[in-house]
Lab assay of single mutants.
Amino acid sequence: QRITLKDYAMRFGQTKTAKDLGVYQSAINKAIHAGRKIFLTINADGSVYAEEVKDGEVKPFPS
Rank of each mutant, 00 (worst) to 15 (best):
F39L: 06
N29P: 07
Q14L: 15
F12R: 03
N29M: 12
A34C: 08
L5H: 01
R11P: 01
F12G: 01
L40R: 00
I42W: 07
I32H: 01
S63Q: 12
Q25S: 12
I38N: 00
G56A: 07
D7R: 06
A34N: 10
F39H: 05
V48E: 00
I3R: 03
Q25C: 09
I42P: 04
K19I: 10
I38R: 00
E52T: 03
I28F: 03
E51N: 07
K30C: 11
F12D: 02
S47Y: 07
F39M: 07
R2G: 07
Q14A: 15
N29R: 15
Q25F: 08
G56M: 07
N43L: 13
I38H: 00
P62Y: 04
R36Y: 06
F39D: 03
D20F: 04
G35F: 06
F12L: 03
A31W: 12
Y24Q: 15
R2C: 09
V58F: 09
S47V: 07
K59I: 15
K59S: 12
I38A: 00
K19E: 12
D45T: 05
A50F: 02
T15E: 15
V53N: 09
Y24H: 15
D55N: 13
E51C: 08
A50K: 01
L5P: 00
I3H: 06
I28D: 03
K6G: 09
Q14V: 15
G56N: 10
D55W: 09
L5Y: 01
K30L: 12
I3G: 02
M10G: 09
I28Q: 00
A44R: 06
V23E: 02
K6N: 09
G13Y: 01
I3A: 05
V48D: 00
A50Q: 00
K16E: 04
K37H: 15
K6E: 13
R2A: 07
T15Y: 13
A18T: 03
S26L: 09
E51S: 07
F61M: 03
G56H: 09
A31F: 10
R36A: 08
E57V: 14
A18D: 01
S26E: 12
Q1V: 13
E57Y: 14
Q14E: 14
V58E: 05
